[in-house]
């Protein structure tokens, strides 16, 4: 019988057996995390997490509930404080950056969330225009009706990429789940980010819509040459769309391996 424990899996994927396998990036590095630790009210979530992302790479984060996947993403964006370690995102030291430094760093990131997080009472086009606020702050990007022609055109182009240009004027709360997530992808892409972060982007969608959204998401990300880091509980998605897979378990990151070297059975071991 195959032993699918995390320890066995890690041993299988770590040639030296001393720690998570470290892939020396060939391309420029967009993100590097070293010795990261995070706890809530004294309860550790994870510690000693280290990994790097090369430009254009797609990395899936997998792991059971409560292992800190979403927390890790929020740490990367500087949305919550961390306890120890270092995070470098597109040349910004997230832990020591000023507010303006963090905003400049975040302006190079696009986020797609599980719940889509569109502003429900606003139009689809206004939601996408607001994706430019990091790069173009101020009143003119609060709504599509105030936005400069160039920004409106960029937002429409992003909507065309996700196939929803015809719904530009529809209120966001009148979209289906799949449409809503496509708009969230357009909002994330409109600012031409260097890194796309997706937190369980298909969790609230039915399987067919989930497949469509993932195909679209990765088609666009690869066209734009964007680095992608995504969380998924769907092991098939992790293996299909990720170049690399990071696994969180037991308060650490015991798995860092090429997707091609793993199979679904091995990944399921992380959930035991």
């Amino acid at each position: 019988m195959t032993d699918l424990s995390v320890e066995t899996l890690v041993a299988d994927t770590r040639p030296d057996g001393t720690g998570a396998e470290s892939f020396a990036p060939v391309l420029p590095v967009d993100l590097r995390v070293t010795g990261l630790a995070k706890s809530f009210a004294g309860t550790p979530v994870f510690s000693d997490v280290s990994f790097g992302l090369s430009r254009g790479e797609a990395v899936a984060i997998v792991g059971a509930n409560g292992t800190g996947k979403s927390t890790l993403l929020r740490c990367l964006m500087g949305l919550i404080p961390t306890d120890a370690g270092s995070i470098d995102v597109v040349g910004t030291d997230v832990r020591s950056a000023s507010s303006s430094g963090l905003r400049a760093m975040r302006a190079q990131i696009g986020l797609v969330s599980q719940k889509h997080n569109l502003v429900p009472r606003l139009s689809v086009l206004s939601n996408v225009v607001q994706g430019l606020l990091g790069q173009k702050p101020g009143l003119r990007h609060w709504s599509q009706s105030l936005a400069p022609a160039r920004s409106r055109a960029a937002a429409m182009a992003a909507l065309q990429k996700v196939g929803l240009a015809q719904l530009a004027q529809r209120r966001a709360d009148r979209l289906s789940g799949g449409q809503s997530q496509r708009v969230a992808i357009a909002r994330a892409l409109v600012g031409q980010p260097r890194i796309l972060i997706a937190d369980e982007p298909t969790a609230s969608l039915d399987p067919a819509a989930g497949e469509d959204v993932m195909d679209l998401f990765f088609d666009l990300a690869r066209q734009e040459g964007v680095t992608v880091i995504f969380i998924s509980h769907n092991i098939d998605h992790a293996l299909k769309y990720g170049d690399r897979i990071l696994g969180l378990a037991n308060g650490g990151m015991p798995l860092d391996a090429r997707a091609a070297s793993l199979n679904a059975e091995q990944l399921r071991g992380l959930y035991d």
Partner: peptide, 22 residues
């Protein structure tokens, strides 16, 4: 919505105007 806009690098005032108030 606020967190999504904050994650794009938007300023606090922009986040409040575009996400919190709506």
């Amino acid at each position: 919505s606020s967190e999504s806009l904050t994650a794009t690098g938007a300023r606090k005032l922009d986040v409040v105007a575009c996400a919190t108030i709506p």
